[in-house]
Computed example of a mutant assay.
Amino acid sequence: MENKKTIVNLRFKSNLPTDEVCKISTNRKEILKNTEGLISLFCYTNEETKTIGGTYIFENIHLAHQYLGKFLTEGIGPKYGIIPVTLKIDIGSLKGEIKGDNIE
């Protein structure tokens, strides 16, 4: 189970404006590209709920936990102005993938 690809969905509300959070993410692009085990990252916002988030795919659960530990302890999370009680993190092993004709 430890070697299965792992998906992490992280979402929160921020005391920063959404465009500021997106700017911080953009500035971290090169760091994220070099994150050990990170295969893919999708960032998203929901204007209705004022939620900001990211869906990450890692090579395995160990590397996902490693990233989350750094996110929470090395000050990366606070840079996003996260309102702590709104932070939600879901982690799970990928069981399958369905691709549509137009999905690359």
Rank of each mutant, 00 (worst) to 15 (best):
S40W: 09
I57H: 08
C22Y: 06
T49G: 05
I91H: 08
L63N: 01
E74H: 09
N60K: 01
T45L: 05
K33P: 00
K33N: 09
N3I: 11
C43M: 03
N34F: 12
K13D: 02
N27D: 15
V8E: 03
E47K: 13
F58S: 00
S25M: 15
N9S: 13
D90H: 14
K5D: 01
T51N: 09
G96N: 12
E97D: 06
K95V: 05
T73Y: 05
E104A: 06
L16T: 06
I89W: 01
F58W: 04
K79S: 11
L63T: 13
I31V: 11
E97Y: 01
I91D: 04
L41A: 11
S93A: 15
T26F: 15
F58M: 06
N60M: 03
E30R: 12
S14W: 06
E2N: 10
K5E: 01
K88R: 15
G37C: 04
V8C: 04
R11S: 15
I57M: 15
G100Q: 08
I98W: 04
K29W: 04
N15A: 02
D101V: 10
R11C: 03
L10Y: 03
K4L: 02
N60D: 10
I82T: 05
G96V: 10
D90K: 13
I76P: 00
Y80Q: 11
I7D: 03
E20Y: 08
C43I: 12
K5S: 03
L38A: 08
V21A: 13
E36V: 07
S40V: 07
L68V: 08
L32Q: 11
G96T: 14
K23E: 13
Y44D: 08
E30D: 14
G96K: 07
L41S: 04
H62V: 02
H62P: 00
T45P: 05
Y80C: 09
L68S: 02
N34V: 11
Y67A: 01
K79E: 10
S93T: 13
I103H: 02
G81P: 03
I82F: 04
I24W: 06
L63H: 04
A64R: 00
T51M: 02
K4H: 08
T18S: 14
M1E: 15
E48Q: 12
G69V: 00
E2H: 02
F42S: 14
S40P: 03
K5T: 06
G92R: 09
K79C: 12
Y44R: 07
T26W: 09
N9K: 09
H62L: 00
Y67R: 03
L63Y: 00
E104G: 13
I52K: 10
K5R: 14
Y44L: 04
E74S: 12
L41C: 02
N34D: 12
R28C: 10
L63W: 01
K23N: 15
K29A: 09
G37V: 04
G54Q: 11
I103G: 06
T18P: 05
N15P: 04
G54V: 10
I52Y: 00
I61S: 10
I24M: 08
G75M: 13
Y56A: 08
D19V: 13
C43R: 09
D19T: 15
G75H: 12
I91V: 13
K13T: 12
L16E: 07
E30H: 12
T18Q: 14
C43W: 09
T55F: 01
D19W: 11
G81Y: 00
I7S: 01
E47Q: 12
L38F: 10
Y56N: 04
L68D: 00
